[in-house]
Design a protein around this nucleic acid. Sequence first.
DNA 1: ATGGTAGATAGC
DNA 2: GAATGCTATCTACCAT
Length: 569
Amino acid sequence: MPPQGPPRRPAPADPRPPAPSAPALTPWPTAPTEHLRDDLALARALAELAAQHPATLGLVVLLAAPHPDLPREAAHDPRKLRTELLALAGEGRVFILHLACLADLRPLQDLLTGAASTPPYVVFHDAHFSLAALASLGISPPRYGCTLTAATLLAEGASLRHDASELATLVAEQLHHGLPGQVQQGQVSPAIARYPVAAAAAAALVPLLRALTPALRERGLSRVYELECRLLPSVLAMEAAGVGLDVPGFQRIAASWQHEKDTTAPTPERLAQLDKLISNYTRWPVDFVDDDGRMRPHLHPLATDSGRFACTRPNLQQVPAEHTAPGLRACFIPAPGNRLIIADYAQIELRVAAQLAPCSAMRQVFRDGRDPHRATAATLAGKPESAISSHERKLAKAVNFGFLFGMGARRFQEYALGSYGLELDAQAAQAARDAFFATFPGIAAWHRRIGALEHRSQREDITVHTALGRRKRFPAGHFSFNAALNIPVQGTAAEGFKRAMIDLHVALAAIGGRGVLCVHDEYLAEVPEAAAEAARELVQRTMEAAMATVVPDVPIVAEALIASSWSDK
DNA sequence: ATGGTAGATAGC
DNA sequence: GAATGCTATCTACCAT
């Protein structure tokens, strides 16, 4: 049961001395382990457990050994491997369920879903992983917690330091690596070999979460912990749904890149771009398209410091847009008889920044239904907003996005040229920066406040947080002004988006639709043709309402449209 | 061979 | 005083 996250970028050097080496996994008394190898034993044991009305259970999933020809990165994938053992702990007892010997899992289903009474609270170490494994057994516990989620949030984006968090990490490490005695070739399976560790971990999970919960509360992390737990069913459903790919169309596009490279003598820049496209995407149909023509990337809701999702295998959050690779997004399509709903937020980062800074001028722009780019352009050009040309607005858009998160005038020159094709001299760049801060004084004050942390950061840790309390800690000497501006904004937007995902999962199911992809502030769903217009409005309203709960003082606008592919506008 | 890092480039 | 940020993945390179 390793943590399921993607490979993280290398952690920044931690200035503190290394943590003492992990103690052996013996802080928890291990109850005698009871093996359940037949349906009768399972039914009897779980009936005893249920009779005691255990409020809280610990549950650990061990997958079967991967087939030798399975790609290594799939070796811990609950979607690709069957579950071999469950370790279930509660009321001082630990059961090992040998699933290969069990034909009828209804007693487990009844216990975990509370068929007879209130469902128990099930503690996982990695709920995302464990719920995926249980889902493939047809079991979806409605009440659960997650020690990995708690530990990750308590780490605050820096290296794990909290004692209890180290315990959580230890559980995962032991499960992954700490085999008690090496597996002998041809003897027991790796899962069987690990059952003592799984049993100990299952017994540890309840006290572990009990230790972590007050820590979450003290750090103001309870709300974001609850959010991350409640989010998981929508993530699992989205991963299970995947998104349809027009494989022949995709292959035609890939072939056209190859053709262009051989035959058209492209510029060095275009050649580099073509090489990148070819190497990145040509193998996608082979590597990532399932037999039903759908791609099912792995979503990682907790893998980033900001709270945004990461996406891997493949990363569908960086599929080239129309201007980079014409026709590519057109290959992402709904199932037959369905339409796509494509929805995203309008200027979400500016709106969140207006909320958090706070900046009354920027809030007022949005409350008036005005355009923030025209507002900046008006200051810049000394004209009323109504008289702004499209060129002036284009410049102001670069100004707003560039300076919001602390870009300097010099860097802005390159940015304006590279991203917007605008040539500016140093004076014009500085004037643009001045105009931005003059238009939005609340933003300027916010930047000054964050800037003032710089010198404190030399000798003490600095922590910033999002609307729901997600924290990012910069260890002393490792402060980043720009990240301190950006992370609360990105993170707050991510939290509103995650709330929307929870609500959309429920709302779409009611009309036969389902979410298929999420890209930071963009949500893709597929819905039956006949429900498309109702779904479009539902998605738009749901997204706006959810974001408004974390950004209450600025109007939130989401735009949703009905489409036949991802490229439709 | 395997593993880690830097730099480039794609997305929002 | 200045300073966009957050990602994943590819290639090239260097180390073991």
